[in-house]
Design a binder for these strands. Structure first.
Lengths: 252, 252
DNA sequence: GCCAACTGCTTGCGCTATACGCAGATGAGG
DNA sequence: CCTCATCTGCGTATAGCGCAAGCAGTTGGC
C-alpha cells in the first residue's frame, strides 16, 4: 500500500479517526474554495501561499498543515473548481448526445474558472472530482459497442481536445468581445504586419477570415467544429466495430 | 501600425538598420538555444533569467537588452524548440497522409522538448517558427474541398489535441518504461486504493486494463487512436462538403 | 568631433516558497 | 485523573526570484 499524500487523504476523507491534538480550524474544502475565489477574481498569478492563507484567516505557514506544497494546493484548487460530476443522462439519449452533453458541461466548468487549464499538474489527477468526471465520461459512452479500452482512449481524446480548446481560447483572449486596444485586439494587426503573404500565403488568407469580426462566437464555433470532427470519428469507429463483429464473430 | 515587442523584432529580423552603439554580443537565437539546452537538461523550473544569462556569458540584467520579460523569453524558447517547419509533401500524397505526417512531426518536436507544452504563453503565438508550422499544416490540407475557414478550424483541432496529448503523456510520466518506485509507477496502486469499484465501476475496470503493462507504448497507441478519430471526422466533413457541392452548386 | 544611442554591469527592492523551532490544545493510554 | 505524544497554528529565517533604476564604456550618424 503506497503512501497517500496528505492532501489526498483530506480530499478523500481518509484521515485516521483516533486523532490527538486540536481540531483543525479549517477544512481543505474551505481552503480550496478561498483559493478558487482568489484565482477567479485576480488570476492564477495572485495565488500564493500567503494570499490563500490570509483569505482563510491563517498565517502563511499554517497552510502547510493542510498541504505539503503549492503544487498540492493547485491540485486541490482544480478539484474544487471542477466540482462534483453530477451529470445524469436520460435513458433515451444516444451516445452522441451524451458525450456532447458531457463535453459541454465540463467545458463550461473550465470556462467558469479559466485558470484551471493553466495549472501545471505534476502528477496525474487523483482527486475525487477529476476522477468523478472521468467516470461520468465513461458512462456517456457506455451503450457503445466499444471495448472499455477504446472507450477510455476515446474519452481521453475528447477531454484532451476540449481542455486545450479552453486553454487556447483563454490564452488568445477570445472569451468575449475583443477590445481593439488590448494586446489581443492588436493581434490581427500584428499578424498582418509580420505574416508576409508571400511567405505564408495560406495563413494570410485564412487568418483574417477566421478571426475577423465575430470574435465573440469564436469559442462556440470552434467548439462545435472540433467536437463534430471527434464525434464523426467515433461514429466511424463504432461502425467499423459493428461490421467487424458481424463479419467474423469470434475470429481473431 | 502597432508597436512590435522587442523579441519579435529580433526574431523576425526587423531591427532598424542604422544603429549606433556597440554591436550586441549575442543573438536572440543563441540566447534561445542556451535556454532550450537548460530546459532540456534540467526542466522548465531551472529556467531563470540568471541561469540563462550565465549560460550565454551575461549577467542577469543584460538579458533584458534582448527580452523585456521572462514571458518573452519563454516565447523565444518555444520558437527555437519547434525549429523551422521544413516539411515538404510529396505530390502524390493525399490529405490524410499529409496531415498525419504533419501531426507526427510536430509531436516529435514537442516530445523532444517536453517542457514546451508546459510553458504558459500570455499571448497568441507570433513567432516565426510557430507561425511557420501553422502555414505548413494548412498546406497539408490544401487539396481538400474545405473552405480556408474550415481548414483553419480543422488544423486548430488537430494541433490542439496533439499538443494536449504530449502534455498529458509527459505529465503522467508515460514517456518511457515506468519505474514502479516513481510517483508515476505508484499511480496505479493509488488509483486502485482510491477508486472504489462501487463508486467508479467503469473506471475501475477500464483503468488498470489501459495502463496495465505496456506503458512504453502509451504515447503511440493513444496518438494513433486520437488522430484516427480526427481523421475520420475530417473525412466525414469532406464527404459532406462534396455531396453538398454536387447537390446544389451555388445555392447557399 | 560631438553626442545620442546603444551596450553590458551593478545595486537594490519586494516578493516568493518553504525549512525550522515554538507554545498551547487535545485526547488516548496508563 | 494524569501524562505526554501528537496535533494545532504562529514567528522567524533563508535562498532565490523577476525586474526597476542608474552606471560607465563603446559606437556611428551628423
Amino acid at each position: 500500500m503506497a503512501h497517500l499524500p496528505r492532501y489526498l487523504q483530506l480530499l478523500w476523507g481518509r484521515e485516521p479517526e483516533g486523532r490527538r491534538g486540536p481540531k483543525p480550524g479549517r477544512s481543505i474544502a474551505e481552503i480550496g474554495a478561498a483559493a478558487v475565489a482568489i484565482a477567479d477574481a485576480e488570476g492564477l498569478d495572485a495565488i500564493s501561499m500567503k494570499s490563500v492563507a490570509n483569505a482563510v484567516g491563517f498565517t502563511t505557514m499554517s497552510l502547510y498543515r493542510y498541504v505539503d506544497s503549492k503544487d498540492e494546493l493547485s491540485a486541490v484548487m482544480v478539484d474544487v473548481a471542477y466540482g462534483p460530476a453530477d451529470l445524469s443522462y436520460a435513458p433515451g439519449q444516444g451516445w452522441r448526445e451524451r458525450i456532447t452533453r458531457w463535453a459541454r458541461e465540463i467545458s463550461a466548468r473550465r470556462m467558469a474558472h479559466p485558470w484551471t487549464t493553466e495549472v501545471r499538474l505534476a502528477s496525474p489527477p487523483l482527486t475525487p472530482n477529476t476522477i468523478g468526471w472521468m467516470e461520468s465520461g465513461l458512462e456517456a459512452l457506455e451503450d457503445t459497442p466499444l471495448t472499455s479500452q477504446q472507450r477510455l482512449s476515446t474519452l481521453l481524446a475528447v477531454d484532451g481536445w476540449g481542455q486545450n480548446h479552453v486553454r487556447q481560447t483563454v490564452q488568445m483572449g477570445l472569451t468575449g468581445p475583443v477590445d481593439p486596444d488590448s494586446p489581443q485586439g492588436a493581434y490581427l494587426e500584428l499578424v498582418g504586419e509580420l505574416v508576409d503573404a508571400a511567405a505564408f500565403p495560406r495563413l494570410a488568407t485564412a487568418g483574417p477570415e477566421a478571426l475577423g469580426d465575430d470574435d465573440d462566437a469564436f469559442f462556440d464555433e470552434e467548439f462545435d467544429h472540433g467536437l463534430g470532427l471527434l464525434l464523426d470519428g467515433i461514429e466511424a469507429l463504432i461502425a467499423r466495430s459493428n461490421s467487424e463483429r458481424v463479419k467474423g464473430s469470434g475470429r481473431h
